[in-house]
Structure formats: C-alpha cells, structure tokens
Design a protein around this nucleic acid. Structure first.
Lengths: 336, 336
DNA sequence: TCCGTTTGAGAAACCGTTTTCTCAAAACAA
DNA sequence: TTGTTTTGAGAAAACGGTTTCTCAAACGGA
C-alpha cells in the first residue's frame, strides 16, 4: 500500500515564514518563475518539501481561471459501455492533474440540468458527454455553454468533436475473418434497424462480401433485437430453410451467445461447420460461450482517453478537428 | 431538453454595481444574512436574478473551508457492481449541491496515491471508497487522512463506516423461498470459499435449512468459481450421484445461468422439477435465462445513496455509527 | 569615483466571496 | 431638545494563492 500524507493544512504563508522569505518569493520559488538566487530557490523548495506543502488548487484556480476539473455526464447506469470509457477518461486526465466530476443523469432532463449547473458553478474547464447509444443525445443541450464540450459514444451537434468506435471497420474485420476462414455463405444477425450501429455494421457487412466476390443479398441480414433469444430464433429460422450459412456475423455478443447455444442444441459444430463472430468483446459473455467467442473489441478505454485529450486541447485553445472521430476496433480471435 | 444558461461571467461585483450597493451588502442580500431593509434585499435579488448571477463556488470554498466536493475511489473497471453504487452516490449527493470526483485506480497503488493526492489538493470534503469485493481493500491506505472516509462494497478498517449488502439476510430469503415452494432437498452451488460473501451466504443457507427442520450437511454446499461453466459442472456432478436435489440456491446469477442451462440440456424441468434461485439480480443475465431467474437483488443504488448520506453527516461533524452497515437485500421472484 | 545596469526580493493588488467591524443616520425615550 | 438605541449599509480583512511593480544593493564600465 502506498501511504498518503496527512492532508495539507500547511499554506504558502507557513512555508514562507519557515524559510524566512515573503510569500511572493515563496510562490515564485515553487513555480519556477520570478528572479532569485539559486540558493534561495532551493532552500524554499526544500522547506516546502519538508513541511509537506501542497498548494490549494482552489486558490490557484481563482487567479488562473482554470479549475483543472472537467465534468463527465452519462446516462448509463448499468451498461457495460460507459464504464471503460469513463475509466479511460479519468486515467488520461489525471496525468495532467485534471480531475473528473461524475454525473449520472439517467434520461431525466431536470436532473441533467441540475448537474450541468452544478458543474458550471464549480467552474469546470470543460465537459464530456457520454452515453450508451451513438444516435441518441443526452437529455440536455450542451451546445451553448461557455466551456468546451466533447461527445463520446453519444450524439452531439455536427460542429462538435464526437468520438465513436469505427463500426464499419470493426464489422469489416469481422467479415474478413470469416472469409479468411473460407466461409462462403455468410449471414448477419443483428439488432433493431433503428440503431445507427446496426446500419453501419450491415453496410460494412455487405461491402466486405461484395469486395470478396461473394453474393450480396438483403436476405442475409436479419434484424431483431439485441437479445440471446433473438439469436436462438434467428438460427431456428435459418435452419428451417433449405440453405444453411457456414459463417455468422452477429451484431453483438449476446446475440452471438444465443446463436452458439442454438447451434450446439442442434448439433451443429462451431467452428467446425459454422464460424461465429460477435461484436463488443464483452468478456463476461465472450469468454463464457462454448467455444469462447471471437468478437470485435471497440477499445472503449482508449476512446475515453482520447476524449479526455481532445477536451484538454480545446480547453487550452488548441486547434482540434471538429466532427466525427472514428476510432479503430480490434478483432479478438477466440475459438468460434 | 432543458436549456442551460450561458455560464456565469457575472460576478457579485457586477451585481452590486448594477444594484448600486456594495458587494458586502449584495453578498448578504443573497445569503439571507446581515441587516438591511426588505426593499434593498429584494432589489438586489431581482438584479442578481436578471443578470443570471451564479456564485463562484471556488471562491466560496476558499472562505467556507467546504468545497462541496467528495472523491469516489473505485478499483472496478468493467464489473456491474460499482456502477449502480456510483449512480446512487452521485444522485444522493447532488441534492445537497455536492459533486463527486470519479477516480478509477485499478489495483495500482501508485495510481491510487496520485488520485488521492489530487483529491486532497482539490480540497474534497470527504472520500468514498468502493470496490467489487467486500473482503479486499483498495490498494491505498485511507485511514490517516484528514478528511472522513466511508467504505462501500470494499473492505475498510474496523473503526470506519462500511456499507455492505446483508448477504445473510439475502441468502436467507432465497432459501426460505425455496422452502416455501415445498422443496425438500436443497443444495447450494457457490463460488470460491475464499470470498467472504461465499461464507456468509453458505452460513445463512445452513441456518435456514436447520430452522425449517431440513437436514443440514456440508455436502450440500458445492464451492467452485463464479462461472457458468461451474454451474454446468456442478449439475453434472449432482446428477451423476444417486439423489438429486429439487431446489438449488446459487451463489450468483452466472452460476445459476449455467445450472439452468445444464438442467434444460438434461431435460429436467425448471421450475417443475427443480427450483433455482440466483444472487445479484444482474438483469442482463437474470432476464435472459429460460425461464427468467428468480434471484436476490442487493439494492446497490440505495447502498450508494446511503454511503453518500453517511459521508455527508461525517463531514458535518454529526455522529455516525461506526462499523458495518448491512443493508437489506430483496428477493426478485421470476420464473425459476 | 561616478553613473547606469542587473539582480534579488518584497509590497501590494488581485481573483470572487464571506464576515466582522465600524459608523452615520434615523428612531426612540426622556 | 438632548441622549441613547436601533437600523441600514459600507470598509476592510480574510481565504490561499499569483503577478506586477518597485526598489535597494550589488555590479560593471569608464
């Protein structure tokens, strides 16, 4: 365990007194500004160190107009998506001395407003909005704030910085993997067509088949919901027809789980007869399927980290490319 | 969508000038302190309102010694446990104008120390430590800090306030439910014996059986790991013996899921022949099993809310009962 | 020796609030 | 009318820092 010092009641005033200088000189010594002899600077530093001086960031903020604090707004209470994003944000920002205010707002506009107001009152340098669905905005309008805003995994205005996984590229890798496994009759079992990710992944699916010279047909794309049950149903439908697929790309890991279970129940070998690829790399699902699921990882932690970096640049007034940032996904090959 | 005002560049100084009073008077008018005519107070208030004045909390904190900010430390990046706890904390504290710093520290002592230092530098009023396992501490010692600390779902020192779900009571309800369903031969399939929750739940299991006059035997408690696979294995073991159970209490929902799947594969009817109860109420698992899983909910959001309240009382110097707070679990009856 | 420059450090103002004093004017009592 | 109390409001210090200015002393060149 790392010990943590007794929190600092020691002020700059105390340090200055102990070192026998004015607080102005002490301040400059510790910030490497101003002019003074190397001796004086070193002495003050040493005294500060010995006394365990830790500057009060609040006081600093008052003059610097920077609070080294950002707000994180999320509408996701249970899901698996935002936690890694949040972890990435927090990890990426702490290196710069920036702390993150966590605010969960459900889908409640009043609650969201309260949280945003609280953040602004606390002088956050910027805000990151994050959610569980890339085509739905949070229940609050952040576009007219006086602080910069970055969107991650949630819909933002067109002129904002918005970070998303590259669903097309991820889906493309999944399908290419199936093709590399010499699969000829590949289908896509996915979620509701209203989700943008469904459209993106389906488009990439068709494109990849086309590029490989395989037949492309809308009938190969089965839309349902995001559940295991739908995976079961889809398999039942496919196996009641005349031609069965030998490769299945699923819209998420839960559907894939349902598909794999259904295939096993029918005595269809995975991956011997049919290869299955999922999407999300939700380890708790992907590692428990039999066989373990090959799936696409969205690198959400890295996405969070980059969201933090982007916000920091905006706060510093540096140029940041507006619009959609699509971050690469990674195929995780397991046994399916 | 709720609109959010343009963040406040308006200072108390501006309000005072606009109202033709000193900033001292303005401050007092807005805080309902000091002495002045009702007219003056109302006028200043109106002006402040019209100008959209929002006090700078940082400046306030400087004099009040309260930052209205607490730190939340967690070592859980993916799990399902801390997210609802965090949501509860955030929700419960925002009502008091308190914001929450989120810090994910994995199991990295250096990172943890950096985060704690950052929180102290930002003058947090208190800290909540939360984790995914009630018998493992975070990788940092928080016991000697100058701010109060509350532990939720993680191990803390004996003299601290620590909030946990009441595993015994939850397990008891689960077993009582099985007994009420007229099950006679009940077994407990659970996780690794090193986990305290395993011991607690197992103890409550035996006690409940005993109380009901049913035979108690160590052989009825099967320890494995937390996986679906173990659920399968355990069923295989049980059904290869001579006497099969008619009620199964599982240590978590994933094991229960494995158990239910294994029973279905063997043609054993759930709940016709065997009743199954899980633990966690992880909806994504519990609602997808066939039939949907009856399980124990730990009310984690409420736990988080109470953790926040407890910390607030400590911050205010109010008396708070030290030691373990065991919060009630709720049985959620579904179809198994 | 004299004058201009550099150096080292402190005084003071400032950031946005709160809070304790102080004090003139108004109200009241005699 | 005079003296005392109350009232309303402002001045100023404080919170913990940063930053701009000022200025004496040391230094360098002629």
């Amino acid at each position: 365990m790392a010990g943590v010092d007794f929190a600092g009641r020691v002020t700059l005033h105390d340090v200055a007194a102990a070192a026998g200088v004015s607080i102005a000189t002490a301040s400059k010594a510790l910030n490497d500004t101003g002019r003074m002899s190397a001796d004086t600077r070193a002495r003050i530093r040493r005294v500060a160190q010995e006394m365990g001086f830790r500057p009060n960031v609040l006081a600093k903020s008052l003059t610097s107009k920077r609070s080294f604090t950002v707000g994180l707004l999320t509408n996701d209470t249970y899901g698996r998506f935002t936690l890694p994003v949040m972890a990435g944000i927090s990890e990426g920002l702490i290196d710069h001395g920036v702390s993150v205010f966590l605010c969960t707002v459900e889908d409640n506009p009043e609650l969201a407003k309260i949280h945003v107001d609280a953040m602004l009152d606390k002088q956050v340098d910027g805000i990151i909005a994050t959610g569980k669905r890339i085509d739905k905005p949070l229940p609050v309008d952040l576009s007219k704030l006086s602080v910069p805003v970055v969107y991650a995994l949630t819909a933002g205005p067109a002129d904002a910085v918005t970070l998303l996984p590259n669903d097309r590229q991820g889906a493309d890798e999944a399908v290419q993997h199936l093709i590399a496994e010499r699969r000829q009759r590949i289908v896509h079992i996915t979620g509701p067509g209203a989700f943008r990710v469904v459209q993106e992944r389906a488009a990439a699916f068709s494109e990849a088949l086309d590029r490989a010279g395989l037949p492309v047909s809308d009938a190969a794309i089965l839309q349902g919901d995001w559940s295991e049950r739908w995976g079961h149903e889809a398999v039942a439908m496919l196996w009641s027809g005349d031609a069965q697929p030998d490769g299945i790309f699923c819209g998420n890991d839960q559907i894939a789980r349902g598909v794999i279970d259904a295939l096993r129940e029918r005595g269809v070998g995975v991956p011997a007869q049919v290869s299955v690829v999922g999407f999300d790399n939700w380890e708790i699902v992907a590692e428990q399927t039999r066989p373990p699921l090959t799936t696409v990882d969205m690198n959400l932690k890295e996405l969070g980290r980059q969201a933090g970096q982007a916000l920091l640049r905006l706060v510093n007034g540096e140029a940041v490319e507006q619009g959609l940032w699509k971050l690469p996904c990674t195929l995780v090959v397991r046994g399916s």
